[in-house]
Nucleic acid binder design. Structure first.
Lengths: 145, 145
DNA sequence: GACGAAAATGAGAATCATTCCTACTCTATC
DNA sequence: GATAGAGTAGGAATGATTCTCATTTTCGTC
């Protein structure tokens, strides 16, 4: 499954003439096994410092621009990244207001259907061109309770 | 309505022995007429620089701690503040992925009911203690289309 | 296999939002 | 009208992120 993701990323980057370098591969692999969005610091940690921070940020930007990663703006001004939805599937988040950690959350299909309908309706009723929706449940994670 | 909000804030602060100084009043008034969360920079602008930046940040923190303001973590590591829900009512947001602006959004009651149910269910089924939910619709605002 | 152009990298400086620190100023109260 | 605690101003410090630029790697081509 992870190598499957890698193959898709490889394809996507090739299509856009963006090279899949070792640092980029490492970041994708790291996020592919994560259970939620990760900050640059967390990824750096995961990669055991094998990539300089400045390069890591650049890598994240490149992958975001290529549509491989999606940013998530969370608590305390830290941006966390995760695989884009076409790679990871649509999902939502549980956010701990205490420590800022973020976990993925599956959501009932009927709620999902309503959200989609809502988003769809918006485009037609307002000047706003809705692309996507983000649902986040805030609270305290098991560790912080 | 605005003075109504002010009276409520006054009451709340008095209950907690926190003074409603002119800077604090100005911030609340500014947010009471805003149509969405505002960043420190935007509020500063609104107040025409009448409050030093450091004081403004301190004021925002004090009001947040007093439960008068709620933070919103949005695009590009900027925190935006809005009146807490007990003052402004429950609502959701339209977020422009282009310019980062945020507008308030009313939401159909049946969607809202399902969200509440979802949040309620979570607490019992996982280790996560859910307090609240945040729904945001991403897209491009009228100005950026 | 060597070459030049384009892409990518590394290291550190720079930036931006935010927080912290410290000395000064109010304001309620005695 | 003295005093303590709350609040403020202003600038230094911090932390995440971005930028710069000199160096290295990679790719297609010869």
């Amino acid at each position: 499954m992870q190598s499957h993701v890698l193959r898709q990323v490889e394809q996507r980057l090739r299509d856009r003439s963006v090279r899949l370098t070792s640092a980029r591969r490492a970041v994708v692999e790291s996020l592919a096994v994560a259970d939620g969005p990760r900050s640059a610091a967390e990824i750096l940690d995961d990669l055991d410092g094998g990539v300089p921070l400045s390069s890591l940020y650049r890598t994240l930007t490149v992958l975001e621009d290529a549509g491989v990663l999606a940013p998530h703006h969370g608590v305390r001004g830290v941006t966390r990244y995760e695989l884009a939805e076409w790679l990871a599937g649509h999902h939502h988040h549980l956010i701990c207001t205490e420590c800022g950690s973020v976990e993925d959350l599956p959501i009932p299909t009927d709620v999902e259907r309503q959200l989609r309908a809502l988003v769809g309706a918006l485009t037609t009723t307002s000047g706003f061109a809705a692309d996507d929706h983000v649902l986040e449940i805030e609270g305290r994670c098991a560790r912080c309770r």
